[in-house]
Design a protein around this nucleic acid. Structure first.
Length: 542
RNA sequence: GCGCCUGUAGCUCAAUUGGAUAGAGCAACGGAUUUCUAAUCCGUAGGUUACAGGUUCGAUUCCUGUCAGGCGCACCA
């Protein structure tokens, strides 16, 4: 069943293509906007003005006329060249019916385009912290959003369980319990208290240990397992999930040699000063990068290439990495690597999730895994409702660094926008119980609203799918929470201004038909964000 | 020095990807409830969008320069 706006766009495009002979390759969001000037508006006249060589206003007039004549739309060309479109009330009611029909309104059918999203990928050497959560809830939401928009998505967490870091981690664990430990704590070791806990557990497990390579590896393995389980537990509290957990150790075994061979066969590598270089400059990098050091060890980059090769091998049309800001210099390299190892044209996007700075009592809270100074996700989830955290994080543009004051978030928790949205939902739920109605009682067959505020709400609902679709290109997830706040505001205003449960059952059901669908949109929106939906909410229960 | 991100109300952030009058929450002040949840609603105040130019029908958004902050520039990971 086509949505009202969807059908309009199709009709508009066919007018432009037929009567103006312009080939339209605009994305919907480039020509469509939801404003107060009409039910929807389009700037299409401006977009095609150059190629048509006409005045935008003139174009708008012509299109508007066609829209009326050929398709029966009510529209209005306006000042510089916008066209405002007005839908019949009857049709908007029909949209409400679609919203409550049981399927998720606006959700597209599977288009069989495979997308891979990698996020978090924290080293298995310590617990998860707030920056990981930002990537985690964002990646999870992006997954939901892309699925809604028809993509076939897989979430992936990459575990760096090989290389120097993990060795240092093993050494740090062993240090606390080995008899013949060295005088100094391992260089680049891990100092947090949790390391000592792991040491003690290891000792309980295998008894006396000596400080040598064999035991360091055992300690590293033990520590890795411990940390991974810990991380999984932490993620559970936020309902963050992955289809795939990929281990660097496996990738090294299975793909590294092949990739190395492939790169040299294609002539992308060369030796210099006993090291092996990759010609990443061929694909826009600043300089060529070392992949095998002069001492024979691999750099971090090589297994990463192998990993991304493994991604391309699985038939993804789009690959998305969510990385921290400290990795932005890494992007040209990865880009080049993907072009080198893949035979297909793959869309590769790196989303940089900017830093979150924690403030406590107005003081900046410095964190570092190495020194062991940090606040873990577990500690955060004890202090702050996970829904509050998610909403707060997702309301902010990923490209924007943000300051997170723990005390303030806690203080404000009562007035937090997440409760505002959840409350609107719960309020409607309880209203529907009292009204004692069912969707089956509603025909959605009304000629007009006779209530401008009711119409305002239902008009807002038409916008929702387009908010979500756009995210597949822009990745600006904050649009959804912002939209939900706006919708909730309309709902609360309406609730305040009008009596809904009424003697006049016909009037009541008319209002409820719209409110039912509004509640459904809130539900879809919250579920995309991974936020709990509450049927009941009372202040004293917090 | 080079690259990336950022600069919007007192604070935290938005602004339909160049659109029509730059908006929310918090904080401040004033008001609304015998009625379906006051976790609500209404109002007041708060802005030269860091600064200076440029591009065009139109700029918070794009370009150039300046200033300020964060991050990154390894044969570390």
């Amino acid at each position: 069943m086509k949505m009202l706006v969807e059908k309009f766009l199709k009709d508009l495009k066919s007018i432009v293509e037929k009567d103006f002979s312009v080939e339209l390759n605009f994305k919907d969001y480039e020509i469509l906007s939801f404003t107060d000037f009409g039910d929807i508006s389009t700037n299409i006249s401006f977009q095609i003005a150059k190629s048509v060589k006409k005045n935008p206003l003139k174009i708008a007039e012509e299109i508007s006329e066609k829209l009326a004549k050929d398709y029966g739309y009510k529209s209005e060309p306006v000042k510089p060249g916008f066209i405002n479109i007005f839908f019949d009330d009857k049709e908007i009611f029909k949209e409400c019916e679609k919203i409550v029909s049981g399927n998720r309104y606006g959700e597209k059918e599977n288009n069989n385009k495979k997308v891979n999203i990698e996020f978090i990928s924290a080293n298995p050497t310590g617990p998860l912290v707030l920056v990981n959560l930002r990537a985690g809830v964002s990646g999870n939401m992006l997954y939901n959003v892309l699925k809604y928009s028809g993509y076939n998505v897989e979430r992936e967490n990459y575990i760096n369980d090989a290389g120097n870091q993990i060795y240092n981690f093993g050494a740090s664990i062993l240090y606390h319990i080995a008899k013949n430990k060295p005088e100094n704590f391992p260089e680049n070791g891990y100092k947090g208290n949790y390391v000592k806990d792991i040491s003690n557990k290891l000792k309980e497990n295998i008894g006396e240990v000596e400080y040598n390579d064999e035991y360091i590896k055992k300690a590293a393995d033990f520590g890795k397992e411990f940390i991974l389980n810990w991380q999984k537990e932490s993620l559970k509290k936020y309902s963050i999930d992955f289809e795939n957990w990929i281990f660097e150790s496996e990738v090294r075994k299975k793909y590294l040699d092949g990739v190395l061979e492939k790169l040299s066969e294609k002539g992308f590598t060369y030796s210099k000063d006993n090291a092996l270089y990759l010609k990443t400059t061929l694909f826009g990098d600043d300089k060529d990068r070392v992949i095998i050091k002069s001492n024979g060890e691999y750099t971090y980059f090589l297994p990463d290439i192998a990993y991304h090769f493994y991604k391309t091998e699985r038939g993804f049309e789009r690959i998305i990495d969510i990385l921290g800001p400290d990795h932005h210099g890494y992007i040209p390299r990865l880009n080049a690597a993907i072009k080198m190892v893949s035979e297909r044209d793959i869309k590769f996007d790196v989303i940089i999730a900017q830093l979150v700075t924690i403030f406590k009592d107005g003081q900046k809270y410095e964190m570092s895994k190495r020194t062991g100074e940090f606040i873990t996700l577990d500690e955060l989830s004890e202090e702050i409702d996970p829904d509050v955290l998610k909403f707060t994080i997702l309301s902010r543009k990923l490209s924007q660094p943000f300051n997170f004051d723990i005390e303030k978030v806690k203080e404000k928790s009562m007035d937090n926008p997440v409760y505002y949205v959840q409350y609107s939902y719960a309020r409607l739920s309880s209203l529907f119980d009292k009204a004692n109605t069912d969707i089956k009682d509603i025909s959605f067959d009304y000629e007009n609203f006779e209530n401008i505020d009711l119409r305002k709400i239902s008009k807002k609902l038409l916008e929702f799918p387009y908010i979500v679709y756009n995210l597949s290109d822009s990745y600006e997830l904050q649009k959804v929470p912002n939209y939900l706040i706006e919708l909730s505001s309309l709902i609360n205003q309406f609730y305040h201004d009008y009596r809904i449960i009424d003697e006049n059952r016909k009037e009541m059901i008319k209002k409820i038909s719209v409110l039912f669908s509004a509640r459904e949109i809130l539900k879809i929106g919250l579920s995309l964000m991974g936020i709990t939906i509450k049927e009941r909410m009372y202040k004293d229960e917090v």
